[in-house]
Design a protein around this nucleic acid. Structure first.
Lengths: 212, 212
DNA sequence: CCGTTTTTAGAACTCGCGTTCTATACGATC
DNA sequence: GATCGTATAGAACGCGAGTTCTAAAAACGG
């Protein structure tokens, strides 16, 4: 099918490099100069190809606008980027009806926990019990990823410690008391007077992990 | 000297926000629209002021090109270098009201993607678009972890490929056709005759990953 | 060797976009 | 009250930039 894959990737890599270095995407003519093309049409030819394979997006066709959400090109050299086992899970972008799901044109980078969540000293996971946050997409048995912090913004989902138990709720500061708001109409909000010393915010929920 | 400092900063902040969110700087006319100005000259007026005070740079005067190297707006930095694959996130068990959340006695092991999900050649991730599976706790923007297989058990959640698109649904074998059942009362099931060659099962959803 | 597909060139077209010029209110200053 | 700097509008100018059309090498397949 496509024989001249190298130039496509070189263009993609140049676009990404220009954006990383200058913050601005190149114009079609600049790409042509970089690649040694004498015609802007040659660039258009490759850009269309890249768009068809899903490696590049141009929602609007305005000047110097691209959308490169593929982390795939993070690596410098060619790397056939086959979905290998071990270091994370491959993330696929577009999936078309053609055959190989795990083909490289779908590849969009590798997912790792430490890459996906802001890992660090202050991050931990916690298993959720109960259905009180079901409408927020957090279900019984899920693991929530929590960034440890003693306060959360109004209405953010956080981990509240009440006596001996940790619960996940939306946390509101109501002046004289805290309101722990479930995301399930079957549950009532919990109100805790600020004088209650057994209450504390353990952190903010930054992610959810579920095994089916 | 300058009385109307607020609008300058609002413009600066908009430019920086647009770039952070979309990767592309706005055009002069887009800034005018955002600020409620009816003339592009008004924007030029402020841009010149910002340039004089050094808060903004425009080395070239090309379309959508700015240079924001002012340290003032540097606060929200993206991680340009992905953290070298770490060892995962600590999973906590009991969390009591006592102080140190990350204390030893709470520790319950480390969570890693490869440990949590059945990693391997046949596992990949896919970003979910739309709310059709919201009642199954799968929301727009989530990453689903998929085990590649060509068939799923009756009613399991899987990834179905229909023409050019991959969708996550509960998949039922209805004899002469497939039924793709959403988990959202606002959506109707999709029925695909088995004679349709553009349909295929890409795999079974074994996990969900969400960043808030 | 010939027909087909891929890849490149060149030029023209149109529109987006930054700039500039002219005006007009509105305060502040003298 | 005349004047000056600030803030905004409106229109026009000119170039930058993406697209498209035609065409022709170059590579490929039988």
């Amino acid at each position: 099918m496509t024989r001249d894959n190298d130039k496509e990737l070189a263009i993609l890599e140049y676009i990404q490099r220009r954006h990383a270095e200058t913050g601005v995407y190149p114009s079609v003519r600049e790409i042509a100069t970089e690649m040694g093309f004498r015609s802007t049409n040659t660039v258009a030819y490759y850009l269309n190809k890249l768009e068809r394979t899903g490696l590049l997006e141009r929602p609007t066709r305005q000047a110097r606008t691209f959308a490169l959400r593929s982390a795939a090109l993070r690596r410098r050299r060619r790397t056939p980027v086959p979905p290998a086992a071990g270091k994370g899970i491959p993330l696929l972008g577009r999936v078309a009806a053609g055959q190989p799901i795990l083909a490289q044109q779908n590849f969009d980078g590798m997912v790792t926990l430490d890459g996906f969540f802001p890992a660090g000293e202050r991050t931990f996971a916690l298993r959720v019990r109960g259905d009180s946050m079901i409408e927020a997409g957090i279900m019984d048995g899920d693991l929530v990823i929590v960034r440890q912090q003693t306060r959360v913004e109004q209405g953010e989902i956080g981990v509240a410690i009440l006596g001996d138990e940790a619960t996940v709720k939306r946390i509101y500061d109501e002046g004289s008391e805290w309101r722990l708001q479930p995301e399930n109409p079957a549950f009532e909000p919990i109100r805790v007077p600020k004088s209650d010393g057994s209450f504390a915010v353990a952190g903010k929920v930054v992610g959810v992990l579920r095994r089916l």
